[in-house]
Design a protein around this nucleic acid. Structure first.
Lengths: 155, 155
DNA sequence: CATATAATTGAGAATAATTCTCAATTATGT
DNA sequence: ACATAATTGAGAATTATTCTCAATTATATG
């Protein structure tokens, strides 16, 4: 089986194995899809892309795999107000690829932005700590995104 | 028809009428449900609560009404990772009731917090302005919430 | 106040994303 | 190579939400 290439390297297999889960062609195909097809993919997107490399893959498997990867922290799942979950590789909060989303509520375009990320992360971190202490939560993740109308839709 | 009481007062009818929409018992029941049954209600919750005052109300009407109120900015719709939309009265970003959410991914408990709200709002405001300018978006709303395990679920 | 008209409604069917079931297949430790 | 538990594909099942449509009703107007 080919080693997974791309900017997410090969740490993935280790992570999967570490959880007593197996490396399979289906999971490989999903990894490939995620790293080559870009950000904020729907399950359907991932399914189509995975099918190219591994035509037999089933949609249910894609869902199961995305769920697994999300649980392992390799993938982040979020939604943008339509009724489809979105998935993308999770660049941990401090990696360079880390970004938030700006969503057009009319045409559904999604812009990744990294502006203000430093300030945002600082505040998020501070808030997490405060809330953790005050409410006894062990905070694992956050969502922060903006909704509006893009230039084209606004006029 | 009785005037809607509660901390959201009677501005609602004006807002509804202002959009050329009508005041109906069904809409009243939904308003009541929202103001007496608290925060982060599912459509089903609202349906049940509304049914008490107005037994004939249909679920579809509840959905339609919540959608309308959301469009009018009176209600905010959000989700917390299960597959149900949540609704609550929208305390505008600068009202005293304004809060964000802390969600337990295990038991689904939702904590409203207002800590750090000032800093959060300042940053959100600044970010909105910056993104607005840079990407040409007219930003209308944002989501900011934290996910984790509550004290009980963490052990 | 009565009337006309367009908005609204309830009920149930339809939709669509996601999850479940189950028998067949396959990755992995030995 | 084998045994075994994990994984899979296919399609059925689930579930929140939206749609359809005929019947009802809020409201402006005379």
């Amino acid at each position: 089986m080919k080693i997974h290439k791309g900017h997410h390297g090969n740490c993935c297999c280790g992570k999967i194995r570490g959880f007593g889960r197996r490396i399979t062609p289906a999971r490989h195909a999903v990894l490939d899809a995620l790293s080559t097809r870009g950000e904020h993919l729907t399950a359907e997107d991932v399914f189509k892309a995975s099918s190219r490399r591994y035509p037999n893959i089933g949609l249910a498997t894609v869902y199961r795999t995305l769920e697994l990867f999300t649980k392992l922290g390799m993938v982040s799942k979020f939604d943008t107000g339509d009724d489809k979950a979105r998935y993308e590789f999770a660049d941990g909060p401090h990696a360079k690829g880390h970004h938030h989303h700006l969503v057009c509520t009319s045409c559904r375009r999604i812009v990744d932005y990294t502006d203000f990320i430093k300030e945002e992360m600082d505040l998020l971190h501070k808030t997490e700590e405060g809330l953790s202490k005050k409410y006894g939560f062990k905070i694992n993740s956050h969502v922060m995104q903006f909704y509006g109308l893009c230039r084209d839709c606004a006029r």
